[in-house]
Amino acid sequence: MNAKTFSLDELCLLTDCSKRTVRYYIQLGLVSRPVGEARAARYTGEHLSQLLRIKKLSESGVSLERIREVLAGEDSPVPPRERHPGTVEVRSHIYVAPGIEVQITPEEAGISPEQLRKFVGEVMALAKSILGERDKDSRG
Rank of each mutant, 00 (worst) to 15 (best):
Q50K: 06
A3T: 13
K118Q: 14
E37Y: 08
P113R: 08
T21K: 00
S58D: 04
I94L: 06
I100N: 01
M124D: 13
R33M: 02
S138H: 11
C17H: 03
D9F: 12
E108D: 12
E59F: 03
K56P: 07
G99E: 03
L57D: 02
R139Y: 10
E108G: 12
M124F: 01
E89S: 15
S129D: 07
D9Y: 11
K56L: 13
A38V: 01
I100H: 08
S138W: 02
P85Y: 07
S49K: 12
S129K: 07
S138I: 08
R134N: 00
A125M: 13
S32L: 09
C17M: 15
P77R: 04
K118F: 05
Q27C: 02
L48R: 13
R91Y: 09
V90H: 15
A40P: 03
L30A: 05
V96D: 11
S7Y: 07
S58H: 09
A38P: 00
H47V: 05
S112R: 02
N2Q: 14
Q115L: 12
P79G: 14
G45I: 11
E133I: 02
L30E: 10
G110K: 03
R139K: 13
N2H: 14
G61M: 09
I94E: 12
G140A: 02
K55H: 05
E69R: 01
E37Q: 15
Y95Q: 12
S112F: 03
H47W: 04
G121R: 14
E82G: 12
E101C: 08
E107P: 01
D16Q: 15
P80G: 10
L57Q: 00
A127M: 05
D16L: 13
P98C: 03
G110C: 00
E59S: 12
K19Q: 06
Y43H: 09
I94V: 15
L30Y: 04
R20C: 10
S18F: 06
S76Y: 04
D9V: 09
V78Q: 10
D135Y: 04
S112I: 01
R139W: 03
Q27F: 03
S138T: 08
L48Q: 13
E46H: 14
L126A: 13
E122R: 05
L116S: 02
P79Y: 13
V88G: 10
K19C: 07
G110L: 04
G86M: 15
N2D: 14
H84W: 14
R33D: 01
S49Y: 10
D75R: 12
E122A: 15
S58R: 12
D16S: 14
F119T: 13
S18H: 01
L28T: 09
L116C: 07
E65L: 04
A125Q: 15
G132Y: 06
E46W: 07
S18Y: 01
S32D: 14
E114P: 05
S7E: 08
K118I: 11
K128P: 00
P85A: 14
